[in-house]
Amino acid sequence: MSRLATVFRPGRKALLSYVTVGYPDTTATLKVVPQLVAAGADVIELGIPFSDPMADGATIQKASHQALENGVTPDTCLEVAAKLSKEVTAPLVFMTYYNPVLSYGLEKFARECRRSGIAGLIIPDLPAEEGATLEAIAARHKLDLIYLLAPTSTDARVKTVAEHSRGFIYLVSVAGVTGAREGLPPGLEPFVGRVRKAARQPLCVGFGISTPEQAAQVSRFADGVIVGSRILQLMEADVSLAKVGDFVRQLRTAIDR
């Protein structure tokens, strides 16, 4: 069974947090993830930095750039994951772009992911039409390949992703890139409703969610809430990581209310 499935339970909404591995440095990643989990995160998305993150806004671009400057490679990320998976029970998921994975070798990457305790993969530039090869390999290694849907996705595409996505479906809240935003986009709830009709997987919403209020609103109609850029900003603002811990606790409280 998918390890991610254990996260989604009736009556409880999931909180998914993203951090870029190696930002501001690898020690910080190793330190912050157990704190995120202790503060209430159910799933940790570990970002493998890529030089050309075209789906990301300024915050994750900057973090990716810094991580690469620090010499972070997919191997570094696998090592970090291996250490963290011994320390935390929350499932770890890699989020990255397709080229580093392709370059590593799909089969080898999937095998190493499994060995490092990774539960799933999110690859924003790999739509379902291009994912068949990796999908088969990931399934063999008991990794969930999680596809994304966007408000622009047609009903036909929603159906395709509902047939292929494993673990959960990542709903992009808004046509745009990652990054903190002021308000929630109009039309988000109907979008989630539209996917709900076609999909049995849990539906997690990300992109632009940066406050407990927004998280609370989203958790009313989605199964999980994904927060990324805001966490990186708080890690940068306060290296003691106290602020980020407080923030995740507030998110937890907000979605449990």
């Binding site: 075209m54 530039d125 622009t152 996705s153």
Partner: peptide, 11 residues
């Protein structure tokens, strides 16, 4: 092929 974010696929 077409390796782009989902948002762009319909476009």
């Amino acid at each position: 092929g077409r390796f782009v974010p989902e948002t762009l696929v319909p476009a």
